[in-house]
Design a binder for these strands. Structure first.
Length: 481
RNA sequence: GGCGGUAUCGUCUAGGGGACUAGGACACAGCCCUCUCAAGGCUGGAACACGGGUUCGAAUCCCGUUACCGCUACCA
């Protein structure tokens, strides 16, 4: 098999959408899998809607996901001269013809037909003029658009995901390939570029299915080899409608800032519209490449389920190498004012130990921040609910905490097994359950009713801070009484 | 309206004529573990859109209906 050349061709009219990201991912996986090239083309021919900011967002989104492209980025706008030349080539070969009808007139006819409930179709016989007529209008410099002369018959192709798709040509209008102002129309530009880029497989959203017969006709008229096509399904929102702002975050950049990991996003997106064929769910890029196949591609639109994405993120959070997680999360800690990246890096064992405690309790990296505050700073703020629930009897609690403090203070080694031994023994002596000690202690150390295991908290808060916090709690409770 | 596409639990999916009493995952509920919260383990409810064929036999193949989606521009 020839090395495949695939492309992702977004128009820079917004941010990188999750649907676009998935199309990019499938193309990328295909290229990697079959040792081919993945190219990026920015379809910026709609000057009114295209922005540099969008182009940048697309680059950033792809970079975040790690979907790197081969060769230089192609800007469609830079190729309009070729598009123009190709359109005129078609005109010269008789595959297309001039349409001198003013755009406004065509628009009027179409509107009228629609008002009558009829399907409008340009009348080729009426539109194509005689040689003499054309020469005359040309001499008068009348503007004209170029229409493709759709041949008889039908156009079909073997789609990678849909199998055979066929369109009767009679249902395809003689479409415009070059506007009367000389600018190329989408289908012309795409085909011209895909030929120039030597694309072997066009994998895109299935909203392009009805463009495909037109494009195939163009390839043939241009004498170019028709590439393979694969139309992947759309991604819909929870209401089954096309994903839009109304559904909340739809740009991959949004997810990045919400605390999602790129590998989780990639994994989740891969599973929307593709399946490895068995029950495997959590996969990293190398495995995705390994297992990717067009047979696993689906034809059905998928609904974007944020809950499952969150679960997926939690899985990757728990699985990734702790040092890697440290690099992702340290800047977040710094931003939250907990500690600087440098400080965290200066004691990696402690930092990573803390992260081990937090990662299984968070689904998003951002969720680790509130959980992490316990391990930083000298003082603790007590949540009212925590006091109400675990410190009901101030006198008794103060006494238990004081005893706890004393036992812990005499420990020769500040390590969990010894702490647990000492405190369980204390509980036994007092004839109470361990929980009666651990829960008030948790409030003293964290101010909250929930936290990682209490001995882990003691270990990572450290001996000095732990004992100080317990002492402060005793003081707080005594003063209260 | 025309053309095209799609149709398995609420969601993502396995399934490509008999292994289906339809499997897994998310979500939900319960239980276990347990110092709390997570994580983890176990259990439960939950689907082949409908109607016709073909066949000894259909979730799987064919046809029709319905529903949903897309396209229908001198937008991309």
């Amino acid at each position: 098999m020839k090395r495949p050349r695939v492309r992702f061709a977004p128009s820079p009219t917004g941010f990188l959408h999750v649907g676009g990201a998935r199309t990019a991912l499938f193309n990328w996986l295909y290229a990697k899998k079959f040792d081919g090239e993945f190219l990026l083309r920015i379809e910026d021919t709609d000057r009114a809607r295209s922005t540099d900011e969008s182009t940048r967002a697309i680059f950033e989104g792809l970079a975040w996901l790690g979907l790197t492209w081969d060769e230089e980025v192609v800007y469609q706008g830079a190729n309009v001269e070729r598009h123009y030349a190709d359109a005129h080539r078609l005109l010269a070969s008789g595959a297309a013809y001039r349409d001198f009808t003013p755009a406004a007139e065509t628009e009027r006819l179409r509107a009228e037909a629609e008002a009558r409930g009829e399907a409008y179709r340009v009348d080729r016989a009426a539109t194509m003029l005689s040689e003499a007529d054309i020469a005359e209008r040309l001499a008068r410099q009348e503007p004209y658009a170029i229409r493709f002369k759709v041949p008889d018959g039908y156009t079909e192709w073997h789609d990678l995901v849909h199998e055979r798709i066929a369109f009767p040509n009679k249902d395809i209008e003689d479409f415009i390939i070059l506007r009367s102002d000389g600018t190329p129309v989408y289908n012309m530009a795409v085909v011209s570029d895909d030929i120039a880029m030597r694309i072997t497989l066009v994998m895109r959203g299935d909203d392009h299915i009805s463009n495909t017969p037109k494009q195939i006709l163009l390839y043939r008229a241009l004498g170019a080899e028709v590439p393979q096509f694969g139309h992947v399904p759309m991604i819909h929102g929870a209401d089954g409608k096309k994903l839009s702002k109304r559904h909340g975050a739809t740009a991959v950049g949004d997810y990045q800032h919400l605390g999602f990991l790129p590998q989780a996003m990639l994994n989740f997106l891969a599973l929307l519209g593709w399946s490895p064929g068995d029950d495997t769910e959590v996969m990293l890029l190398p495995e995705l490449i390994e297992r990717f196949s067009v047979q696993g591609l689906h034809a059905k639109a998928a609904i974007f389920d944020t809950k499952k994405l969150e679960w997926m993120n939690g899985q990757h959070l728990a699985l990734m190498p702790i040092a890697e997680l440290g690099h992702v999360v340290a800047p977040l800690f710094e931003k939250a004012g907990l500690a600087t990246v440098a400080e965290l890096a200066s004691r990696p064992e402690w930092f990573h130990g803390v992260l081990e405690l937090l990662r299984v309790r968070a689904r998003l990296t951002d969720e680790m921040i509130p959980l992490a505050t316990t391990f930083f700073g000298a003082t603790v703020e007590y949540e009212p609910e925590a006091i109400g629930k675990q410190w009901r009897d101030a006198a008794v609690t103060a006494e238990i905490l004081q005893a706890t403090h004393d036992r812990l203070a005499t420990l020769e080694q500040w390590e969990p097994a010894a702490m647990e031994d000492a405190l369980r023994k204390l509980a036994e002596e007092k004839g109470i359950s361990g929980g009666k000690i651990f829960q008030p202690l948790r409030v003293a150390l964290t101010g909250k009713t929930v936290s990682p295991g209490i001995f882990d908290v003691l270990l990572y808060v450290g001996r000095d801070h732990s004992l100080a916090r317990i002492g402060a709690a005793v003081a707080f409770l005594s003063k209260d009484a």
